[in-house]
């Protein structure tokens, strides 16, 4: 009988989760007058460069997050319990400051007359143009989503039984081998979870590219936003682009789930 407790939420999901996604599909396959058409997908090659640019920038940001986040998570997991607690708190604390504002603060740091360049010229060094470049956008992605890489990796690492590591050492494995054969395979679900949690928001962002990229390098998120609330109002085309993005993301995740065997949801929270 307790089963029926979920019925209100099932109805809610049908209306506010499933129906909207069906609407995206319907909009993508109809024209402004409401008739069925593939027209919205016909000129998708115009946006190919945006798709590729978004994917590459999100992949670079994800790779940098792994390169920084993995050793960091490992270092944190090696600390004593009290320090671990403080460090984890310090990683989550910035999330309490509005993320638009934190991204905006990077503008003051990176601008041509900003803090870094003022420092450089004070030292007599030539200034560097950083703002409104693709590098600045990637930096913004890494800055905003790095905690989402560190936390899931850290949470699987602290769950690794010390006895497993000790057993490997007793059996003659050196520290490199222990890492390669024990710690790395056991931490993989955390890495996979981190990859999704960094890649998905990076590939779909429109704020970071607008604030730090100066709207120069259009990303998928910008493209979709423009079709719904921006200058190029066309929800049908916007839906078509959203649909393709959704399919790409789901396909990537299915491939990754094959490696992670569905464990990643467990480490997300």
């Amino acid at each position: 009988m307790k089963r029926f407790l979920s019925i209100p939420y099932i109805v809610w999901m049908a209306i506010f989760v499933v129906a909207p996604i069906i609407l995206v599909v319907v909009y993508a396959l109809t024209s402004g007058s409401g008739s069925f058409t593939f027209e919205n997908f016909a000129h998708m090659e115009n946006f190919l460069s945006v798709f590729i640019r978004s994917m590459i920038m999100a992949l670079i940001a994800t790779a940098i997050c792994i390169l920084i986040g993995y050793p960091l998570a490992y270092a944190l997991a090696c600390e004593g319990p009290r320090l671990q607690k403080i460090f984890i708190m310090l990683i989550m604390l910035p999330m309490w400051m509005n993320f638009l504002l934190r991204t905006y603060a990077w503008m003051s740091i990176l601008e041509n007359t900003g803090l870094i360049n003022s420092l450089l010229s004070a030292l007599g060094l030539p200034t560097v143009n950083m703002i409104n470049t693709q590098g600045a956008v990637v930096l913004g992605m890494v800055y905003n989503y790095l905690p989402f890489m560190v936390l899931p990796i850290y949470s699987v690492m602290v769950r690794i039984e010390p006895s497993v590591v000790e057993a490997a050492q007793d059996l003659g494995a050196n520290s490199f081998k222990v890492f390669l054969r024990i710690i790395f395979p056991l931490s993989l679900p955390g890495v996979l979870s981190g990859i999704t949690m960094v890649f998905v928001p990076s590939v779909s962002t429109f704020i970071i590219s607008r604030l730090l990229g100066g709207g120069k390098s259009l990303l998928l998120g910008d493209l979709i936003e423009m079709q719904f609330l921006g200058s190029a109002y066309n929800p049908h085309l916007g839906s078509a682009i959203s649909l393709i993005m959704m399919v790409i993301i789901i396909a990537c995740m299915m491939v990754m789930n094959r490696f992670g065997e569905g464990e990643e949801r467990a480490v997300m929270l």
């Binding site: 209306i15 506010f16 129906a19 909207p20 996604i21 609407l23 995206v24 909009y27 999704t196 998905v200 928001p201 590939v203 779909s204 429109f206 998120g221 979709i224 936003e225 719904f228 929800p235 916007g238 839906s239 959203s242 993005m245 959704m246 993301i249 789901i250 995740m253």
Partner: peptide
């Protein structure tokens, strides 16, 4: 799992 922007635009369409 879905990107925020897709959740956002799909609900806006609804």
């Amino acid at each position: 799992i879905n990107a925020d922007i897709i959740t956002g635009v799909s609900m806006m369409l609804l």
